[in-house]
């Protein structure tokens, strides 16, 4: 069954009613419900459209974190062939919060690095809910250097609540690992594309999201701290998360306006979780257009990337 978000209650009521009527009709317990079903379906479609047309930032936070949203592995499955995952930081361990390797995108080799949250208890634990430890960032650095050496463009898929805050992570230099990873993104001579597919959680995200082009899904969020974290620090009141979400400007629309991201990938009505294939295909098309543009350009991608970041915020 579909996992409804709290604010989707009106749609949920209508959709459950439709299901109920359909079941009655199937069992022959009700007749002539076809018209009623059609009417309800239109109403529920309209209700869904109206909700998603005007999502508040806090509602977008819920959508961005929705458990049925396509995750990194779904994009990899949907868009690439020959995906060959590579593992380990050659130093301490293998962190599966980062999935990475090489694959073919419409025939051409690409390097992929993405954060994976997992989709059931087993896979969530295996991927540590998408919260990356230092080994994950060091693996990312390794893959970036490998991509650069073989002149293969990089695609990163960003979806994390944040880097993992734990004793072991601190012990092994979480901060240094993130800093090195951001620096590795900036050092690439090959072009890079980053797509925030769900949550872009602070330093944990920027470590792999520093790219020539940064895109966001329509209902994704990208932020320096979670709204809950900001509420507890700035308002000293965790119930103020809604205000924090609004005031911190964390939506794709806000970030496009602030010129932090380059484009927004539209989501199907009701969010990516309602039609994963549609949003995965749209993402693929934008990646293809960008790759084509890169291939035809005579650009120093490292210099372009550096200047792009230095220019950020200077023209506001």
């Amino acid at each position: 069954m579909y996992n409804y978000l709290d604010f989707e209650k009106p749609v949920q009521d209508l959709e459950l009613k439709i299901l109920e009527l359909k079941k009655l009709a199937e069992n022959g317990e009700a007749v002539d419900v076809a018209d009623e079903i059609t009417r309800l379906e239109k109403r529920s479609r309209d209700a869904l459209r109206d909700l998603y047309k005007a999502l508040t930032p806090w509602q977008k936070v819920q959508v961005a974190r929705h458990s049925d949203r396509p995750h990194c592995v779904d994009y990899i499955k949907g868009l690439f062939s020959d995906f060959t995952p590579l593992a380990g930081d050659r130093n301490f361990g293998e962190d599966q919060a980062i999935v990475g390797g090489f694959a073919r995108f419409r025939g051409e080799p690409v390097a992929i690095i993405g954060q994976e949250k997992g989709s059931d208890t087993t896979s969530r634990l295996r991927h540590n809910f998408g919260s990356v430890r230092p080994e994950g960032y060091r693996k990312a650095v390794r893959l970036m250097e490998l991509a650069d050496r073989f002149k293969i463009p990089l695609l990163t898929l960003v979806d994390t609540a944040g880097a993992y805050p734990g004793v072991g992570a601190e012990e092994r230099g979480q901060a240094e690992a993130i800093a090195r990873s951001t620096s590795a993104c900036l050092a690439l001579k090959v072009p890079s594309i980053s797509v925030v597919i769900g949550e872009g959680g602070s330093g944990g995200a920027i470590a792999i999201a520093t790219a020539n082009r940064v895109y966001m899904l329509e209902h994704a969020i990208y932020s320096v701290i979670s709204p809950e974290g900001a509420a507890s620090i700035l308002w000293r009141d965790t119930t103020r998360s809604k205000d924090a979400a609004t005031n911190m400007k964390i939506t794709a629309q806000d970030l496009l306006e602030l010129k932090i991201i380059d484009a927004i990938i539209p989501e199907p009505m009701g969010g990516a979780q309602r039609a994963p294939e549609t949003v995965i295909a749209a993402t693929g098309d934008l990646i293809a257009r960008t790759m084509k543009e890169f291939a035809g350009a005579n650009t120093d991608f490292r210099e372009q990337r550096r200047e792009k970041y230095l220019a950020m915020g200077r023209s506001l």
Binding site: G203, I206, V224, D254, I260, L310, L316
Partner: peptide
């Protein structure tokens, strides 16, 4: 400063 603060990391 929200996301602009985060962008100081790469900058």
């Amino acid at each position: 400063e929200g996301i602009l603060s985060l962008m100081q990391l790469p900058r």
